[in-house]
């Protein structure tokens, strides 16, 4: 055991940090794009704040197409784009572009469904007091949905932990990379099992802290 950690400890720590960096940075960037997209899809829907049939249909299509392309294909197909944007398609930095592209439509849909939970009543109340469209979006829709959106964040983080492991296979580094190199190519089961255990712990921790955060934020049912 001690021997194992002496030999692979640093490798696993570095891998874990790389996975965490990829996951958290991609999630943050994904929300920068995903939230406005989700809001836009919601408010342009028929009967909503700013109905716009055309825009709504186009956005819906883009989101659906984004969600239907398998990640592994996106990963390879986006290599040239990634090089163009961040200068490399390798390593942690190189993984961020495909991770963001893959997760944005997914987050947009989750934000959309969080906003849909709200129901028309409070929006109508806000409008009846003279709130503008922007005020309704900021002060009512997003603010009232924050706990629900927060739950989506942990789902996204966990999904991206999995995706980043996949990205590891094409040179992104992190735990996925270690699992492939040591576990698959060199038949070192102990290293592979160690990476899996770390991944399980990461997922559990993210889920637990996400639930705690959402519960702390949510002012209902107390």
């Amino acid at each position: 055991m001690r021997e194992f950690f002496a030999e692979y400890g640093q490798l696993l720590i570095d891998g874990t940090l790389a996975t965490l960096a990829m996951t958290f940075i991609s999630t943050a960037i994904t929300y920068v794009f995903g939230v406005p997209l989700g809001v836009l899809v919601t408010v342009t829907a028929p009967g909503s704040l700013k109905p716009h049939r055309g825009l709504n249909a186009v956005l819906g299509w883009i989101v659906n197409i984004g969600r239907s392309i398998p990640f592994i294909i996106l990963l390879v197909a986006l290599i040239p784009v990634t090089r163009l944007i961040v200068g490399t398609s390798l390593g942690t930095v190189g993984a961020i572009v495909p991770l963001v592209v893959a997760a944005t439509p997914f987050v947009a849909r989750m934000v959309e469904s969080s906003l849909a939970e709200l129901g028309p009543g409070v929006i109508e109340a806000a409008l009846s007091y003279g709130a503008s469209t922007w005020q309704v979006i900021w002060k009512v829709m997003l603010r009232e949905s924050l706990p629900s959106i927060m739950r989506g964040v942990s789902i996204t983080l966990i999904t991206l932990v999995g995706y980043s492991a996949m990205a590891g296979a094409v040179g992104a580094g992190g735990l996925g990379d270690i699992a492939i190199r040591y576990g698959y190519y060199r038949y070192q089961d102990d290293v592979m099992i160690a990476t899996i255990v770390i991944l399980i712990i990461l997922v559990q921790l993210i889920q637990m802290s996400g639930d705690l955060a959402a519960r702390a934020l949510d002012k209902r049912n107390r």
């Binding site: 109508e124 007091y129 209902r220």
Partner: peptide, 30 residues
């Protein structure tokens, strides 16, 4: 115009994530 016309509803339509005071002051906040 709407700011000078208050409205109350069957289901109250209060903001669940705001305190009672923040609910009452919402029309002033906007």
């Amino acid at each position: 115009l709407r700011a000078t016309i208050g409205m109350i509803f069957q289901d109250f339509n209060l903001f669940a994530q705001r305190t009672v005071l923040e609910n009452v002051t919402f029309p002033l906040e906007i």
